[in-house]
Amino acid sequence: MHGGGVVTGVGGSWRTPLLMALVVLVGVAAFGWPFLASPGSELGQMGHTNDASFLFVGLMTLMALVLLAEMSSGGVDAKTVAVLGVLAAAGGALRVLSAGTAGLEPMFFLLVVAGRALGARLGFMLGALALLASAFLTAGIGPWTPFQMIAAGWVCMGAGMLPRASGRAERWLLAAYGLFCGLAYGVVMNLWFWPFMGDSAPAGAGYLPDAGAATNLGHYAVFYVTTSLAWDLPRGLLTAVLTLLASGSLLRALRRSLRRARFDAVGEFADAR
């Protein structure tokens, strides 16, 4: 019985998916503008200085806030707040504990499994909040935080949107998803600062504002393979292995706790005689 989650609030039922779709579009532009901007466009011009990077830091901050506000509008009850807070604390604690071990972030294991148990909407909130909490815990707030929040929210939301499965099939599904996410998160997260490197990127691996999309894609592939793959692949593998080994019992435990949190007595007032 995945999906549903603990939220009892109504409102924004059609608005939230629409808003999410729009924010995905903004995200595609924010992460992928080095490939999308046509030469001579305004963003292509901004690519010469660091203006575009700053623009998107501001935009992504606004998007994260707006999305979280919309998702929590219509009332999020105290139980949801508490469950989200505690799971985000677990994610943040895992990130703090694993700081220093290059790329081996067991946090993704928790995000994938909890996102699966919580469903898409709460999953997104959990992913974003877990990243924010860990940034607060390590006093590491910076321009990367909104990008990380939204990307981790997507990771967690995706787990909630995977097709229904149970038992061993679900475990393999989640493990494959974990491997994919460990890599994809790295690919996407490198993009936000890659244009920022400017000319100091290695030859043949830097962002060229006036070159076409194909050249820049090739350069980015070189950049990613030479600098980041060695970090992202272990992370994806670790997530997959942990999910295979432990997701079954963790999912059961999470779902049982979430069911307990879902009781909801709606009070009704009758007219006084």
Binding site: A82, G85, A90
Partner: peptide, 16 residues
């Protein structure tokens, strides 16, 4: 408008 989110973060920071 972000009150619940802020509360959840405070809970997270206290629990971590």
């Amino acid at each position: 408008t972000l009150y619940e989110i802020g509360t959840a973060v405070v809970v997270a920071l206290t629990f971590a």
